[in-house]
Structures are given as C-alpha cells and as structure tokens.
C-alpha cells in the first residue's frame, strides 16, 4: 500500500528558501534562481524576467539526469554540478536532497567561478533546511 509523503516545501521554510534565492540573485550576472523538485516542478523561484517555469523545471531535471547518467557511464560516480554554457549565458544546476535541484541562470558576463563558489556555499545551507523539513 502507498506510504507517500508529499514533500511540499512551499508550506515550510518558504521564507528562508526565498531569502537564499534572493541572495543568489545578488551575485553579478545571475538572472534567475530556482528550486526544482523531482518531478521537474519549480517550487521556488526568483527571477528578473518572465520564464516558462513548467518547461525550465522539466528541462533542468532532464539535463541534470542525463549528465549524471553520463558521469556514471565513465565511472565518475555522483554528479555535484552541471553547467550549460550557452550563447547568452549559463545554466548551472546542483542537487540538494531527495531529487530537488537548485538551478541558476546567468547572463554571459557572469563570473562563472564566483557563481560556482556561491552555489557551493549555498548548497549545505539548503541541504540542512531540506533535511530538517524531510525529517519532520
């Protein structure tokens, strides 16, 4: 029988998560920061302009999943970050917990190293928040 626990981070820790995303948005060149759940649904987002959240959420999960699978095929084990370098900027995605992913969209002139640093600093904080939520 089902023993499904809905993970609805919208109703818990929402303020803290939004605050973390806003903080990421203050990094130079970052235009959007979002949390995507395991179904590809955007649970939280901060952005400068309109984004099709349904499409970007599913795409982030698909790209991250494909990259992680590729890594496994060459024995690289777990994937810590996926970076898409595009003509107009970057999309970086990083796993949090329970299939949730933090995704950040930047302009082309963003300092990639700085954004990566901010993500690596942010992930432990998000992991702690999510772990607290999941254990309740």
């Amino acid at each position: 029988m089902s023993n499904i626990h809905l993970i609805n981070t919208r109703k818990s820790n929402s303020g803290e998560i939004d605050s973390i995303l806003r903080n990421l948005m203050s990094t130079q060149g970052v235009t959007a920061a979002a949390i995507v759940d395991s179904d590809g649904f955007v649970t939280h987002i901060q952005r400068d302009s309109e984004i099709n959240t349904d499409a970007i959420g599913a795409s982030v999960q698909v790209v991250f999943g494909a990259a992680a699978r590729s890594a496994q095929h060459v024995g690289h084990h777990s994937t810590n970050m996926v970076i898409c370098e595009n003509t107009e900027g970057y999309i970086l995605s990083t796993p949090i917990e329970a299939g949730f992913i933090l995704a950040v969209v930047t302009q082309r002139d963003a300092l990639l190293g700085r954004v990566r640093f901010e993500l690596k600093e942010t992930i432990p904080v998000l992991k702690k928040l999510f772990n607290n939520f999941l254990s309740n």
Binding site: D39, A58, G99
Partner: peptide, 17 residues
Amino acid sequence: EDILGQGAPSLVYHSGQ
C-alpha cells in the same frame, strides 16, 4: 530512465501534462 536517470519522471510528467 537509462538515459536520463532521475530526469525520467519529469519528462514523463511533462509529456502527460
């Protein structure tokens, strides 16, 4: 799933949507 790993349910969900 073989290709997308954890991304598979998102693709399937999106298709159904």
